[in-house]
């Protein structure tokens, strides 16, 4: 314990003050988006089953799908699906030994974030105006 230099050594990162690298943030987001997609798939499968259950069941499911709740769930799911897809493509690059340098991983992270937002906006434009 006779360590005179105790205060001047590098410390291990503390979670409350450690700024996560973008690669870590997008990695966590990949897991969250993948699991959150369960909401969108449940809504759509309920809607499909309702369509073969009868007019009243379909009217209820179709109302939810076309309401503002459905809009939020499905737009959120579209973004989550694009994000998870782009992040999954990056994993295919990782597995082949590419994009592993810090600057490349950082750039790919921003490409995933910006790309997923752009693709979601394009999807909405295509849905409402085409």
């Amino acid at each position: 314990m006779a360590d005179v230099n105790r205060g001047n050594r590098p410390l291990s990162p503390h979670l409350q003050v450690y700024r996560l690298p973008m690669a870590a943030v997008t990695s966590i987001m990949t897991r969250i988006t993948g699991h959150a997609l369960v909401a969108g798939i449940l809504l759509l499968v309920w809607w499909l089953v309702a369509a073969v259950s009868g007019p009243r069941a379909f009217a209820a499911a179709d109302w939810v799908v076309r309401s503002w709740i459905g809009f939020i769930v499905l737009t959120g799911s579209a973004w989550a699906l694009w994000f998870h897809t782009l992040a999954g493509i990056r994993h295919l690059f990782y597995d082949s030994g590419q994009l592993l340098r810090i600057e490349e991983a950082e750039r790919a992270s921003w490409a995933i974030i910006i790309g997923s937002v752009v693709l979601t906006l394009l999807s909405l434009i295509l849905f409402f105006f085409a």
Partner: peptide, 19 residues
């Protein structure tokens, strides 16, 4: 995941046309 890269845009188009 390779299959889903192709299926994701196709599925979104199908659902977009159905809603």
């Amino acid at each position: 995941s390779c299959a889903l890269v192709l299926l994701v845009p196709a599925f979104m188009l199908v659902i977009g046309n159905a809603i």
